[in-house]
């Protein structure tokens, strides 16, 4: 009984922690972006502007929660929730440390891939139910982008699976003792990271939002807390991809013993998050067709090649 309660407490703790991190990222992103653009960013509310998030939250809660009269109301309301749920569920399989983690699932990696596919529904439904041409175009772009990149996101991980011989995330981490997978699987690492950016629709791959073309893409019609869910969802997505990259390629919690495992995990994860922000600060957005061309003509063959070569080597050396 106490076990179950402890476990529930752990689950709630992880969820709150993640949401806190995502919210904090809003401030972090604005400050670091400013840093790279020779500005200050929010620095007036609280120490270094840290209370900006609180101010934003208060504002967003008090905004009119407006549903356009022409929208498909039920789907319009459900769509942002789907995004939050699918991303939060993905975290269930992430082993933060040997002790902190929600489930130890032997198909953990497949679960993560399934959940990230599920996220695409949220975007398509949001764009469709808004009944607005910009939203719809955004949703169509998101669908094509996410479905395409899912293919080689999965394929790029097959090398890791072959090397560790398991879909279980903990097994994968443990298999990296002594040698993190980003060395043997460097190609897979790069492909996964690029696919991850595309999956989270982050810059430079924010084609579904493309504010200079589509107002705000699939969430043009959203306001108040429903918009807030998309907004926080985006940062949760960044956190998820960073956490997954850490787990799959950088040895998860592994690291020298002078710091506890959770610290190693967070350090690696935040390094990726910062890299996400740096990308946003430096790269322009490609065209939709360029993105598809990159995916299908470059990344897809490369990931296939990666699978073949890794498979061949594994067979040859009987690893």
């Amino acid at each position: 009984m106490i076990d179950i309660l402890l476990h529930i407490a752990l689950v709630i703790g992880i969820m709150l922690g993640l949401v806190m991190i995502a919210a904090g990222l809003i401030w972090l992103e604005r400050r670091t972006l400013a840093l790279w653009q020779d500005r200050y960013g929010p620095n007036r509310t609280g120490l270094f502007g840290t209370l900006q998030v609180v101010a934003d939250m208060i504002k967003i809660f008090f905004k009119e929660d407006w549903i356009p009269p022409f929208a498909d109301k039920k789907i319009f309301v459900v769509a942002p929730a789907i995004l939050m749920i699918s991303i939060l569920l993905s975290f269930a399989v992430v082993p933060f440390t040997p002790l902190i983690g929600v489930v130890n699932l032997n198909i953990g990696l497949l679960f993560f891939l399934g959940m990230s596919s599920f996220g695409a529904y949220s975007i398509v439904l949001a764009g469709w139910s808004s009944n607005n041409k910009y939203s719809l175009i955004g949703a169509v772009r998101a669908a094509s982008q996410m479905i395409s990149y899912e293919v080689f996101m999965g394929l790029s991980l097959m090398g890791v699976v072959m090397l560790s011989g398991s879909f279980n995330m903990r097994d994968i981490v443990l298999a990296q003792q002594g040698r993190w997978f980003f060395i043997p699987q460097f190609l897979g690492f790069i492909i996964f990271f690029i696919a991850g950016i595309a999956e989270t629709r982050r810059l430079p791959f924010d084609i579904p939002e493309a504010e200079s073309e589509l107002v705000a893409g699939y969430h043009s019609e959203y306001s108040g807390m429903k918009f807030g869910m998309f907004f926080v969802g985006e940062y949760l997505g960044i956190t998820l991809i960073s956490a997954m990259t850490t787990t799959l390629f950088l040895g998860g919690w592994l690291g020298p013993a002078f710091l506890p495992p959770i610290f190693w995990f967070l350090i690696k994860m935040f390094a990726f998050i910062l890299f996400f922000i740096l990308l946003r600060a430096s790269l322009p957005r490609p065209r939709s067709d360029q993105l598809m061309a990159l995916g299908w003509k470059v990344l897809f063959p490369l990931s296939m090649l990666n699978v073949l070569v890794t498979g061949a080597l594994v067979l040859y050396f009987k690893l």
Partner: peptide, 21 residues
């Protein structure tokens, strides 16, 4: 050029800020 852009953006961290408070 993509990597170079990322790098150039990164080293802006050490530039003087232009904001007038």
């Amino acid at each position: 050029s993509i990597l170079r852009s990322i790098w150039l953006t990164f080293i802006h961290m050490f530039h003087k800020r232009v904001t007038v408070e």
